[in-house]
Design a protein around this nucleic acid. Structure first.
Lengths: 249, 249
DNA sequence: TATTACATTTGACCTAAGTCAAAAAACCTA
DNA sequence: TAGGTTTTTTGACTTAGGTCAAATGTAATA
C-alpha cells in the first residue's frame, strides 16, 4: 500500500521545480521518506538538526509551548511546502559540527502525513555546486518572513474578532484561488460557494490565532450574532462578506 | 562636515564582507547615501519599493501601526545591519515591474542616522552574476526568521515581566559579547559592570515588548520591588542576575 | 442502541494589561 | 536658573480575554 517516493514527488515541490532530472536524482539520493499518524511528533525544538522537510501529504503544525503548557501554532504546513530550512543557513559551521538544533516543535495533525527529509550536510555541499537553487530558498524564506510579519501584526495590533475575520477571509480567498487554478487546467467551471471548510481543528485554530478554545468559540458566536457568518461544525458559511472584510482590513 | 560614503563603509556590512574591491565598487555604483534626523520616516509600508537599506550610523525602528494608532516595533536596526531585503526576493517580477512595496514602516530614532540604499533592480542582475552573495542573504534572512520566531514566542506565551526580563538579559549579554570583542582586538581589559544602558526610549521599548509605556513602567517597578534590578533613567543595574535569568528562561 | 471518547459550548469568575487623566521628573535651551 | 517641552510615573478605573468546571454535542465503536 505504501506510496512509492520518487522523482515525480520532488517535482511538485516549488523549491525544486526548476531542477533537471539528474539534479532531482541527486536530491533524492540524500533524502529519506517518512510517514506519520495524527499527533506524532516529527521533531521537538532543541532536538539535534538533521535536515529540512518537504510535505507530500497531510499537514503539520509548527508550534512553541510555554512552561505552563500553553501552545502557539506559528505555521501550518501543507503539501509541497518545505520547513525546517532555517538551521541550514543560519550557521553552516553548526550544521557541519552537529551543533544545530530545530528551532520549533513539529507535529502531524492528520493521519497518513507523508514527508521527506533532505539531509543537511550533503545538501550544503550540493548547494555550493548549484547556486541557482539558493534564489528559490531566498524567495521561500522571504515569503515566510512576510507571513511572520503579518502574524505579529495581528497578534499585537488586532483583537481576536479581527484575527478570526482575517483568517476566514484568507481561507476563503485561498480556496477561490485554488478553484480558479483547477478551472483553468481542467477547463471546467466550479460552483462558487460562499463558505469555507476549516482544515484544522478548532483547538488548533485557537492556538494559531493566539487564544484558547473557549474564547474562539465565543468569538465565532459574536460573528454569528452579527449575522456575518454561520457556523456548522467545520463549515463556515459567509453571510456578509463585506462586513467580514471590513473587520479583517 | 558630511561624512564621505565609500568602499570602507561597505566593507563593514556583514552582507558584503567577502566581496572583492571591484565587486564592492559595483555595489557602490548602484547605491546612494541618505541621512535622517530623529523621527524622520525612511519609508511607510505600502510605499513603492526601490531598494534595501544598510545602516551606517544611528538606529532605525521597523514598526507596524494599527488603525487605532497603536504602534508595534518589530525590529530595531543598528549600524551594519541591513533591512528591507524581503521584497527583493519575494517576487522578482514585482520588483522589475515596480509593483513591489515596502512591507513595514521605518523611522530613524536617532539624530544623524546614516544609511545607504542599494537599488533593487540593478542589484537583482548583479545577484545573478555573483551567486555566492545569496548565501550571505540566506544566512541574514534565516537569522531574522529565528528572531521573529522568538519574538512571537514571547508575545504569545510570556507575560510582560518575562518579556522585559528577557530583553534586559539579551542586552546584557550583547554588551558583554561586544566588550569581549573589543578586549580581543585592542588587547585591553574592560571593567565589567552589572548594568546596561537602554539604547532606545522607554516608549519604544514598550512598543517593542508589545505593551504600552504605563505598563512597562509598572513592570520595571515590580522587578525593582523584588530587588532584581534598579532603574536610574536609562541605566538598569542588575542586582540579582540569577533571578532575572530564571524569569527570562 | 448503548458506550465511550472527544470536541465544543456555556456560565461564573478572575486577572493582566489597557485607558484616561494628572502629577512628577528629567531634559533642554535661552 | 527659569521656563517650557518631553518623558516617565502614579492613580483610579475598565475590559478583553484567560481559567476552571460543568454541560452539551458529535462521532466512532462495540
Amino acid at each position: 500500500m505504501k506510496k512509492k517516493f520518487d522523482i515525480n514527488d520532488l517535482k511538485k515541490i516549488h523549491l525544486f521545480s526548476d531542477l533537471s532530472e539528474s539534479e532531482l536524482g541527486k536530491i533524492l539520493s540524500i533524502s529519506h521518506y517518512k510517514k506519520f499518524s495524527r499527533g506524532e511528533i516529527l521533531f521537538f525544538d532543541t532536538e539535534p538538526f538533521h535536515g529540512f522537510y518537504c510535505v507530500l501529504e497531510g499537514s503539520i503544525k509548527l508550534y512553541k509551548i510555554s512552561t505552563e503548557g500553553r501552545e502557539h501554532i506559528v505555521h501550518i504546513m501543507n503539501p509541497y511546502n518545505t520547513f525546517g530550512e532555517v538551521p541550514v543557513f543560519e550557521n553552516y559551521e553548526d550544521v557541519l559540527n552537529d551543533k544545530a538544533v530545530y528551532p520549533i516543535n513539529a507535529m502531524a495533525i492528520e493521519d497518513d502525513t507523508e514527508v521527506f527529509v533532505v539531509s543537511a550536510k550533503p545538501f550544503l555541499s550540493y548547494l555550493k555546486q548549484y547556486p541557482e537553487i539558493s534564489l528559490k530558498f531566498l524567495s521561500t524564506l522571504s515569503k515566510r518572513l512576510k507571513l511572520l510579519n503579518n502574524h505579529i501584526e495581528g497578534l499585537t495590533l488586532h483583537d481576536i474578532k479581527r484575527r478570526l475575520a482575517k483568517y476566514i477571509i484568507d481561507e476563503y480567498e485561498n480556496t477561490s484561488r485554488e478553484m480558479k487554478k483547477i478551472e483553468k487546467t481542467k477547463k471546467i467551471i466550479l460552483k462558487k460557494s460562499d463558505s469555507i471548510e476549516l482544515s484544522i481543528s478548532k483547538y488548533d485554530l485557537a492556538s494559531h490565532l493566539g487564544t484558547i478554545l473557549e474564547t474562539l468559540s465565543r468569538t465565532f458566536k459574536k460573528l454569528q450574532d452579527e449575522k456575518i457568518i454561520e457556523v456548522h461544525g467545520k463549515k463556515i458559511a459567509i453571510l456578509d462578506i463585506k462586513k467580514l472584510k471590513s473587520y479583517s482590513a
